[in-house]
């Protein structure tokens, strides 16, 4: 423990504070350790919830957490294409009394190619598929499949867009490297270059937040999802435990990124001032950098366990 104290009267060897303990740096690492524990609370809960979820918690034909004990023998249909005239298909659905009304049928058309109608007998499903084909739509019979948790690429239970988020992951990684380069530049005394890298980090970080806001917006308000994802058609925190975990974890991560962007804007503005930072004095850049890389690191984990697994 005693070795933690900074060496007394040590000649400041170089401009670099790497490898040297300053109170600020110690505190930021300690803060990151507390952040590790905070995200442990969230991610750990997600892991145990997921591992302990009932094997029949999610299904392709019914909303999450539906009691499936009385629906074992039913099948559903998936409307893959509403055809040139969706109204005709919608009419068939209303006519067959499988949806509540014209409005619900209309919403189902919006959900295509994943418009799910569940709770049908085999005969009725075949009949309905036939009628939809006649109405120049396209549908298929879907047997009931239950699962523990929404799997990636499973469009009937999982609404998350992996391609977009994979690209967004790359965006955040890029912001991490510009952050590292900003620190490297100021260590060499290249103030303008450092400022430009900071600006780049801000722009790329904001891009990440922007994409996440776009994703949230489409999940919660824009898109209509099949019933296996949400009974209401929209993917919101209350529709399933999966949604709760997803929004809480990515939401808190997003809040951390936003806080990081604000901190970056502050140090960027200061870096523009003459004498703001120099090769000898750039601790804030290093500290915000550590925070920023940590947030990047958390995202790498979140992207893997929430989107891909």
């Amino acid at each position: 423990m005693t070795t933690l104290a900074p060496p007394l009267n040590s000649p400041s060897r170089s401009s670099a504070t790497v490898g040297l303990v300053t109170p600020g740096k110690f505190a930021i690492w300690l803060f990151l350790a507390t952040e590790v524990m905070f995200f442990t609370g969230l991610i750990g809960s997600y892991i145990v919830f997921r591992a302990g979820s009932s094997p029949r918690a999610y299904s392709n034909l019914y909303p999450p957490a539906t009691d499936l004990s009385r629906t074992r023998d039913t099948v559903g249909i998936v409307i893959e294409d509403a055809g040139p005239d969706p109204d005709k298909v919608a009419f068939e659905l209303v006519d067959a009394h499988v949806v509540g009304g014209a409005e619900e049928a209309k919403r189902l058309m919006d959900t295509a190619p994943h418009g799910v109608v569940g709770g049908l007998t085999n005969d009725k499903a075949a009949d309905l598929v036939h009628k939809i084909e006649v109405a120049s739509g396209h549908a298929r019979i879907e047997p009931l499949k239950t699962q523990k948790w929404p799997l990636p690429y499973d469009d009937l239970t999982n609404p998350l867009a992996i391609n977009l988020t994979a690209a967004n992951t790359f965006v955040l990684i890029c912001s991490s490297v510009t952050m590292a380069l900003a620190l490297a530049a100021i260590r060499q005394g290249k103030r303008l270059k450092s400022s430009m890298y900071l600006l780049a980090t801000i722009v790329i970080g904001s891009l990440f937040v922007g994409v996440q806001v776009y994703e949230y917006n489409s999940l919660m308000f824009v898109h209509h999802y099949p019933v296996g994802i949400s009974p209401t058609g929209h993917f919101r925190p209350d529709v399933s435990l999966f949604a709760s975990c997803f929004f809480t974890m990515t939401g808190f991560h997003g809040a951390h990124v936003t806080a990081g962007v604000i901190a970056l804007i502050l140090i960027f503005l200061r870096s523009l001032v003459l004498g703001g930072y120099s090769a000898q004095n750039h601790a804030p850049i290093e500290m915000v950098g550590l925070y920023w890389h940590f947030v990047d690191l958390v995202w790498i984990i979140l992207f893997t366990i929430v989107y891909l697994i």
């Binding site: 070795t3 990151l32 590790v36 790498i300």
Partner: peptide
């Protein structure tokens, strides 16, 4: 990310004393 960007390759034991536990 930790090793290169957060400079764990250049830090000393105290960082690990914080992050390890």
């Amino acid at each position: 990310v930790g090793w290169f960007f957060m400079h764990l390759n250049q830090e000393r034991a105290w960082v690990y004393l914080l992050i390890g536990p």
